[in-house]
Design a protein around this nucleic acid. Structure first.
Lengths: 193, 193
DNA sequence: TGTCTAATTAGATAGATATCGAATTATCTT
DNA sequence: AAGATAATTCGATATCTATCTAATTAGACA
């Protein structure tokens, strides 16, 4: 089992730490719902629900699919489960102690490009430095899972605001593959040197 | 695996949803600490740490042992683990949908005595009604685990403010046993009729 | 293109909670 | 008993966040 970044776990528990958002997850656990439906079921206004859903989405706990101008929200049970389980591991809890990103054991190049919070300071100019950064970045993606473009962007934005550049580079290095709007992580053997 | 009360799960995730409290758990995951030590390690004042610890304690995630006037705090890894794992169960998530306590399948007497939030409205006057309430209450305690009086009080107070009465009755009905300040749940066979 | 619908975003306000210094409590020491 | 120490409780303030209405965006459809 993998140890998660403290910042991600904090984002996870903050996303859950409100009755309305737990209820949203509860409703989505049964079936997908539109924003209107959710607002009616919780007796809240649509902007409020939209706000809660955006927190859940940024934490990766729900995903959205659009049909016309209706947005259908679904539970990402695997992510909830993975992050929930990690809370029970002493090893994981220990990573919280410092309040910093878990930089130990990282490639030296990568460490130099990360802030204490684990975000990228810049996009590296030389190919030699770029590759290890992208390797580190693509490992944020689960193997064998399909991502929408919005999900790819959300994952990248946790590390750097320039989602377009990094997304393009990940595809260019054949670390991410893309077909008809769906992305997935490629096997390491295929990554460009 | 058991499904937890929605209110308990909410209390759990709220207790985790702050960087300082995650860091506290991280420090306690390695070894026990006093309040002073924790305050120094987090660069916070003691009252602040005390406040955070009380939230963690009420959620059952840490326990305290006193030596002189030093309070030593320990992680309750089992509780963290149990509640973390339950988040990954669809069945558990579905109980969040209503925003109400999970009253289905409860004894009729008990249900009549509970508010929508799952708290006891009153202490039942007749022995006939009292027993099922106490049975329900003692089942909030884990089997085979030892509780300090403060922990017993905290658990009871989640259900009713009058911790003294209910604690006395639980012991009187031989549902809880007590020896030198430590409490534990008795086997059901021993409970008084 | 204009209109309708669903959702999001912006901006304002009310409510919750994190933090601190001061006061209090509990325990130990002499 | 008196003073010292560790922690908690209290009360005030500052920060954060949940919620709403109003404005805006994006898609469907005629």
């Amino acid at each position: 089992m993998v140890v998660e970044e403290p910042a991600l776990v904090l984002q996870f528990v903050k996303a859950l730490a409100h009755e309305s958002r737990l209820r949203l997850l509860g409703l989505l656990a049964a079936r997908e719902h539109s924003v209107q439906q959710l607002a009616a079921l919780l007796s809240l206004k649509e902007p409020t629900v939209s706000h809660h859903l955006s927190l859940l989405r940024e934490a990766g706990l729900v995903r959205m699919r659009q049909d016309g101008n209706t947005h259908w929200y679904n539970l990402e049970l695997r992510t909830v489960s993975r992050l929930g389980r990690t809370l029970g591991m002493r090893e994981q809890l220990e990573t919280f102690a410092s309040g910093q990103a878990n930089l130990a054991g990282l490639d030296r190049t990568v460490r130099n490009y990360l802030t204490a919070e684990g975000r990228l300071k810049a996009f590296p100019a030389t190919r030699k430095k770029r590759r290890p950064i992208l390797v580190w970045l693509v490992r944020q993606f689960e193997d064998g899972r399909r991502y929408s473009e919005a999900e790819v962007n959300a994952l990248i934005e946790r590390r750097h605001h320039d989602r377009e550049t990094f997304r393009r580079e990940l595809v260019g290095y054949r670390m991410l593959a893309r077909e008809s709007g769906v992305y997935w992580r490629m096997p390491e053997a295929d990554w460009a040197p």
